[in-house]
Amino acid sequence: MTMKFYQIDLEQGGVTRTVRVPSETDVQAADAAAPLMKAGERIVAIRQVVDDGLQKADALPPVSQAESFAEITPGAAAKGPPPTS
């Protein structure tokens, strides 16, 4: 998939603010915006914006589900420590 840029509108008590995040999908864009949210804020809009090459992001792209579980997956567990002689 291709990295895109999204504008996320966050609202709390009638006050809205906007953050920009890079992401491959709009669902992952919400994940990328989560660390930027203040207590009590909610996402009210997610819009993809045109990448003009000058985009500034407020957060890093979210990690994929596979990346987040890499340390605990059976494949990683099966490797275990290197054998000793």
Rank of each mutant, 00 (worst) to 15 (best):
P83M: 10
F69I: 14
P62W: 05
T2Q: 14
S85Q: 14
K38I: 00
A30C: 13
D58Q: 02
T84C: 03
A57M: 14
S23Q: 05
Q7W: 08
E71R: 09
I72T: 04
G53D: 09
V21A: 08
K56H: 08
P62I: 01
Q55F: 10
E67K: 13
L60E: 14
M1P: 15
V21C: 04
A29C: 01
F5A: 07
L54C: 12
S64L: 03
A70C: 14
T84R: 15
T18S: 04
I8M: 09
I43Q: 06
A76M: 07
E24Y: 08
D52Y: 02
P82H: 01
V19I: 07
T18W: 13
A30M: 15
L54K: 14
D26H: 11
A29G: 05
P62R: 03
P74V: 03
I72K: 10
E24R: 10
V21D: 10
I72V: 03
Y6R: 04
I46G: 02
P61G: 09
G80S: 01
K79W: 02
T2I: 11
V49H: 01
P22K: 11
Q55K: 10
P81D: 12
A59W: 08
T16I: 01
K4P: 06
G80V: 02
K79M: 05
L36Q: 01
R20A: 09
R20H: 09
V50M: 03
A33G: 07
G53Q: 02
P83F: 01
S64V: 04
P81K: 04
Q48I: 08
G14M: 00
G13L: 00
A32Q: 06
T16E: 02
Q48M: 00
V50N: 09
V44S: 05
V15L: 12
P74H: 13
V19R: 09
S23I: 12
S64A: 03
R47Y: 03
D51C: 07
A59N: 07
F69V: 15
A30G: 11
L60P: 08
R17A: 07
I72W: 03
A30Y: 11
M1V: 08
V15T: 02
P61E: 03
Q12N: 12
Q55V: 15
P81S: 11
